[in-house]
């Protein structure tokens, strides 16, 4: 299972605005990759191209050798703003992707329950998004993405609308889920502007420059898990990435 990315750049109405330029990287099984970059590095655009929501102007994204499609059930997306349907309950939100796939009701319910439980939301099945705290909302977003049992999970700044405490708690829980090999996905691609967050979570960090986004570096973070943000090695990585960007 692989995501192969060749090269991309991006144009806008008539004039050429380079948002991304010649970004290339591979993603293979058990990879947890973070893309970091300052604002204007087009990292969110990159993610939207990777999941097929936008088309690249040059180059292509291949998923298991095939060009990517937006509704590819093997790739799921988690959004910064949660993007929950306010009129659907937690359970209905989680079932959404399954219903679109045509999974029968009984099975759908079973799968949804399983992932609601995995993210610690059992008890909130009937709740509506507005009744949840921010952290809970993002858990629904994660359960909804996992429920379609994707090979690749894409997360766009998943913690940046949360308060720092909730965010840290959720990061740890996601890492806990990630260590469970029985659960999907097979690989994670996360976009963030927080360098500490990237070093804390990823096996590999891809650093983008700003305007246009060019790949500056691809770093293997070989720190043992669980990582402690107070250790000097951790800071070494954070400092290195900072110096690359600034």
């Amino acid at each position: 299972m692989q995501v192969k990315d060749v090269a991309k750049s991006f144009f806008e109405n008539g004039k050429e605005f380079k948002v991304l330029d010649l970004v290339r990287f591979d993603l293979s099984e058990r990879d947890f990759v973070c893309v970091v970059g300052p604002s204007g590095s087009g990292k969110s655009t990159l993610l939207r191209i990777i999941v097929g929501l936008e088309k690249p102007t040059a180059g292509e994204v291949l998923f298991e050798g095939e060009p990517i499609r937006a509704d590819n059930p093997q790739v799921a997306m988690v959004f910064q703003s949660f993007a929950l349907f306010p009129w659907l309950s937690v359970e209905q939100n989680v079932e959404l992707g399954l219903e679109a796939k045509g999974t029968p009701l009984e099975e759908r319910r079973k799968i949804a329950r399983k992932f609601i439980d995995a993210v610690g939301l059992t008890g909130f099945e009937d709740a509506f998004p507005r009744e949840l705290s921010g952290g809970m909302k993002q858990r629904v977003g994660i359960a909804r993405a996992l429920a379609i049992e994707p090979l690749l999970l894409c997360m766009d700044e998943p913690f940046s609308s949360l308060d720092p405490l909730t965010a840290q708690n959720l990061r740890d829980e996601i890492l806990q889920l990630w260590t469970n090999p029985d659960l999907p996905p097979k690989a994670v691609l996360m976009v963030t502007h927080a360098i500490e967050e990237a070093v804390y979570m990823a096996d590999r960090v891809i650093v983008l420059s700003s305007r246009p986004g060019r790949m500056i570096a691809e770093l293997e973070i070989d720190l043992p898990r669980p990582r402690n943000r107070k250790e000097p090695e951790f800071y070494g990585w954070v400092d290195e990435i900072y110096s690359l960007i600034v």
Binding site: G52, L53, M77, S81, L84, A100, K101, I148
Partner: peptide, 14 residues
């Protein structure tokens, strides 16, 4: 909201 549209598209709601 654009994100909600994107969510609908990426989860295959058509």
């Amino acid at each position: 909201p654009a994100d909600l549209e994107a969510a609908a598209a990426s989860f295959g709601l058509r």
